[in-house]
Design a binder for these strands. Structure first.
Lengths: 148, 148
DNA sequence: TATTGTTATACTCTATAACTATA
DNA sequence: TATAGTTATAGAGTATAACAATA
């Protein structure tokens, strides 16, 4: 049993459920859905239009309207009219939103530490390095800059 | 930028979104939600009660009722009365369910291969090994046997 | 009494289609 | 004409609370 080894697909799927579930639970304690949390996380280093958000979060633009409505009502984000296109809106994190996402991030980091606890330091470093490589390559494939 | 390195938490979160999203899209093509897909995946090597499913999928038992209703209506699973507890039901995969989950798994494996394409073979092996170790440890923590 | 599962219900989130206003 | 965003609407999936049957 301790020697059992999952295939890459099963392993990554289960790891995703584990990580995704941890983030979901942390977010829920702050009354955030996982999509709302991703929104706030995305806005930490971007001020995208509604349309760009739809692409980044892989949601329909009508879903983005509701998502931003709810977040704006809570004072977490704000719509700023674009200066170059009077049809367009840009979405920005408020100070309240920034501090909330930072709280969630801190909590979530503790979860990830616990999840990776079984690995020695060298293993955790190796994993982070491999994961980063995968992400950079895949972000490039989708035309998204991981470090805007 | 190509040298950028994400922290473990950000990296694992983004990797989870990537993997989770891939599975979600594959599942959707077969009219399966990600939870329904997890259900079928779980049933590949188990015949749990409704209650056990609620624990495995981290859902309320009333949600499990609906989930199994929908899957049973499509002929993917079946409820089998427990032989030892007349209150309890056990949920089993049908042949149709087994072949569907196997299709989704095959498709998803192709996605994972593409996602890991940026890594050399040694990197993919190292990643699988690290992930397996993490999962086995975490499953043990939750009292769940990864290889029942 | 406690537990297993179901039901009734309300809520959140999502996409589709039709719309307004700009480009 | 095409695009950015909103609205109206319907559907899927979730949890809470109350319930029946059995332990």
């Amino acid at each position: 049993m301790t020697d059992g080894q999952l295939g890459a697909a099963d392993g990554l799927a289960q790891l995703s459920f584990l990580v995704y579930g941890a983030l979901e639970r942390r977010a829920a304690r702050h009354d955030l859905s996982i999509v709302a949390t991703r929104l706030l996380g995305t806005l930490r280093d971007r001020t995208p239009s509604m349309n760009e958000l739809a692409q980044l979060l892989v949601l329909d633009k009508s879903s983005i309207t509701g998502l931003i409505d709810r977040a704006e009502r809570r004072g977490l984000v704000e719509r700023v009219p674009s200066t170059t296109d009077r049809r367009a809106m840009q979405v920005a994190l408020t100070e309240k939103g920034r501090s909330l996402v930072s709280e969630v991030a801190t909590d979530f980091e503790a979860d990830v530490s616990a999840i990776l606890d079984a690995l020695p330091k060298s293993g955790r470093q190796a994993l982070s390095r491999l994961v980063s490589r995968v992400l950079v390559a895949n972000a490039a494939d989708r035309g998204i800059d991981l470090f805007p």
